[in-house]
Amino acid sequence: MANTGWDEFEIGAMLRTFEGEAGDIAGTLQEDRNYTQNSSFSASVADWRIEKPVFNKDFCIDCQFCWIYCPDISIISRDKKMIGIDMDHCKGCGICVEVCPTNPKSLLMFPEQAEEEVEIANWPAKETKEK
């Protein structure tokens, strides 16, 4: 289906997001869903990024601001904890870094080619406010 050309596409046809019967989708987490090739979940926009967010869980307070304000469903939160970033769907907009309230921020933007471990090891220290 995914390889069908636009002129072979049947007018008025449906695109199915899930294989077989889709029951309670609102109660099924993404990793448990049976996506077809037609769901954009199967696609990637990773090549849009110039900068990528890096997550340092040492400073995270699980406030979930990044989860609610992420436009691309790329912040993975499970059991009320932020556990990582979905790098296939992140477009590198940087909203998560802007809304992060911790000091120092637990999410920062780095160039796409940066090494995650190196950047976490060199994480900036806490900023003190000058009076």
């Binding site: 849009w48 979930q64 609610i68 469903i73 009320k80």
Partner: peptide, 19 residues
């Protein structure tokens, strides 16, 4: 917000909206 974050999204990433 913590409780809200347990929701399973029904809108998928890799849509083509601007970053």
């Amino acid at each position: 917000l913590k409780e809200f974050s347990t929701s399973a999204d029904r809108f998928e990433g890799a849509n083509l909206l601007c970053p």
